[in-house]
Design a protein around this nucleic acid. Structure first.
Length: 603
RNA sequence: GCGCCCGUAGCUCAGCGGAUAGAGCAGCUGCCUUCUAAGCAGUUGGUCGCAGGUUCGAAUCCUGCCGGGCGCACCA
């Protein structure tokens, strides 16, 4: 039971009694003047026609809070200031310490949640544009999973569509083996695929990739660009590409085989990037657009049967209400294009229908950039009209802003094109390694490598997750890797310092020890730790991860460690403080873990 | 034109109905025989874009305006 609701429960009845009516929310909030304050008297004043102070005084007289609070006082215009009794705090902290879930209960109402995120394009490089979706989606999956929901991670790969005509033709032009080696074995390679990479899907492939082979980070990009350049310049190539698309869609065996090859190579590459990023996505989570091919016709037919489909200039459209375009006329969701092909709206509708009908999902999350908001709103409206999205099932667009460069514009390389994700991650780890070597010369090279990955990747993720997701944020190495302020390294360091205390302490974490809260710094820390569950609950609902980040920062930023010596304290105090230390470290580690960030034991 | 998002300290950001608006960085003052100084304390700095309105109370809600970004039929 969290402290805030414990107090609110007690106060609710006194407020209700004073108000003489139905239930009243006491509006208990954290306060700077006490531990908590109840604000309801202010809003009640008008309704009751009485001065708020008078109401507050009466509430305090009626409230049975003696066992919870050491002080209950009316203050200012009518606030009820509550100071929690030290004994209660100590007891609650002891209970929290004994709880492996740190005050975060498994959800009583588990749902099937589909998290649609990352979604890179096959045969293209992953770039900064995929960073936020991947990081936010991963945190979403981790958090909801820990809360006990059934999480379906859906990596909606761009593995289908007209570009594959040109990509396959390009593959043929280069000669499959040349092209494959071009794709898979590069010289400047940095990303080992490892022996476990599965390429069995590429049946009959001429160049199976074995142990130790590596995927060049640069070649996917040049492959795509090569195809693109030919497509733009060469009419004959364009023609062949179009025919190849038809062959692919028609299921032509050799075409499909080449397509699978492209997809498989790309998937291996993506997995290597995800491993580098420490993201949970695995091959079974790759459910690309092509997966829905067989459903596009039936989805269209069903829309037609429901009378939602309108023929508009030979394109089959749905016109959801409420979306006027430039000319004031309704904007359509184009399900089937004039040329008979299906566009992404059809795929999105098919995927949505599949997720609610077949997977039984009741919460559909789309971790996609804010610019696509209207598109998804339209998809949801159509899905509701079609009966594919009805309560309790609902869809949420988990939108996010841009990653900006120091110039305040969309982050780009010096040449102006998008920054490759692997290069960015390499730089993060390199910078973190330099930092680790400089700050702690005692670390051996293996430890430096491990710590550098945790810090570098953690810094990038935390920079993303610690700010309001819906806003753009400025990507700044120095700031995200700073040891001060609301950064991953600061939190990781706070964690490592506590672990260091335990190494010095020698023995195990004391259990069953009474926790005594005396010093004000202990109070502040205890109150913060007791709030972890409520914060995680809020984030479960809102997916505003910066609230969790802010909470962890408040936990780590405690002056407890400056003012309350642990190992030097007398035995009883020492044990009590060791419990607080351990709890702090566990909250930090678990909280960071939910954000996809590793907290090393030493750094 | 319509719609969505955003304007808070020099910079980067919290706060989104409650009592004197908070952090970090930068600036200034201090603290290393340190439970890891990869740290801590103090201090300077704000007509919360502007103008109305609602409210006992507004950075927070509503309206209008100004400034910035994005979206609005066959690319995803």
């Amino acid at each position: 039971m969290n402290l805030e609701s414990l107090l609110a429960d007690r106060l609710a009845s006194s407020f209700a009694a004073v108000a003489g009516g139905g239930p009243v929310d006491p509006v208990v909030r954290r306060s700077r003047r006490a531990d908590f304050q109840a604000e309801a008297a202010l809003s009640l004043a008008r309704r009751l026609g009485r001065p708020p102070r008078e109401i507050a005084v009466e509430v305090v007289e009626r409230a049975a809070l003696a066992d919870l609070c050491s002080s209950v006082a009316v203050s200012g215009p009518g606030f009820v200031n509550l100071t929690v009794a030290d004994e209660l705090l100590g007891r609650l902290v002891s209970e929290l310490a004994a709880d492996p879930r740190l005050g975060v209960p498994v959800t009583p109402t588990p749902e099937t949640v589909v998290v649609d995120y990352s979604a890179p394009n096959v045969a293209k490089e992953m770039h900064v544009g995929h960073l936020r979706s991947t990081i936010i989606g991963d945190a979403t999956a981790r958090l909801l999973d820990w809360l006990g929901h059934r999480v379906v991670r859906a990596n909606h790969l761009g593995d289908w569509g007209t570009p594959f005509g040109m990509l396959i033709e390009h593959l043929i032009d280069l000669g499959e083996s040349t092209a494959a080696s071009n794709l898979s074995i590069g010289t400047g390679s940095k990303l080992p695929i490892g022996a476990g990479s599965e390429l069995s899907v590429a049946a009959g492939s001429e160049l199976p990739i074995g142990a130790g082979s590596e995927l060049s980070i640069g070649d996917l990009d040049s492959f795509y660009k090569g195809a693109r350049a030919k497509f733009d310049a060469d009419e004959a190539f364009r023609q062949r590409s179009r025919q190849r698309v038809v062959a692919l869609q028609g299921g032509d065996e050799s075409t499909v085989r080449l397509w699978r090859r492209l997809v498989a190579e790309s998937e291996s590459y993506f997995l290597a990037v995800y491993d580098r990023l420490d993201v949970l996505l695995t091959r079974p989570d790759f459910v690309g657009e092509s997966h829905y091919n067989g459903m596009l016709g039936p989805v269209t037919d069903e829309l037609d049967r429901l009378g939602l489909l309108v023929d508009s200039g030979d394109a089959a459209c749905v016109f959801p209400p409420g979306f006027p375009g430039r000319d004031g006329e309704p904007v359509p969701l184009i399900v089937r294009k004039r040329d008979g092909g299906y566009g992404y709206p059809a795929t999105d509708l098919a995927a949505l229908r599949h997720r609610t009908r077949e997977l039984g999902a009741t919460r559909l999350l789309y971790v996609v950039g804010l610019p696509q908001r209207q598109h998804f709103e339209m998809v949801y409206v159509v899905a509701r009209q079609a009966g594919w999205l009805s309560p309790p099932a609902r869809a949420e667009h988990v939108g996010f802003g841009l990653v900006l460069g120091p110039d305040g514009r969309k982050l780009a390389s010096r040449a102006g094109d998008s920054v490759k994700l692997v290069e960015l991650l390499d730089e993060a780890v390199d910078r973190a390694a330099a930092l680790a070597r400089q700050k702690n010369p005692r670390l051996d090279p293996a430890a430096v490598a491990e710590v550098a990955k945790a810090i570098g990747i953690g810094a990038v993720k935390y920079a993303d997750l610690s700010a309001d997701r819906t806003r753009d944020y400025v990507f700044d190495w120095d700031r995200m890797l700073a040891l001060h302020g609301n950064t991953a390294p600061y939190l990781q360091y706070a964690h490592a310092r506590i672990r260091s205390i335990f190494r010095k302490a020698g023995g195990p974490v004391p259990t069953g020890v009474p926790v005594s809260i005396g010093a004000p710094e202990e109070r502040t820390l205890a109150l913060e730790l007791l709030d972890f569950g409520a914060v995680v609950g809020t984030v479960e609902r809102t997916l505003e991860f910066h609230r969790l980040a802010g909470h962890l920062y408040a936990v780590a930023f405690s002056s407890f460690f400056e003012h309350c010596p642990v190992l030097r304290a007398e035995p009883a105090v020492r044990d009590s403080r060791l419990v607080l230390c351990d709890l702090t470290a566990r909250v930090l580690r678990q909280g960071l873990h939910l954000l996809g960030i590793t907290a090393p034991d030493r750094m």
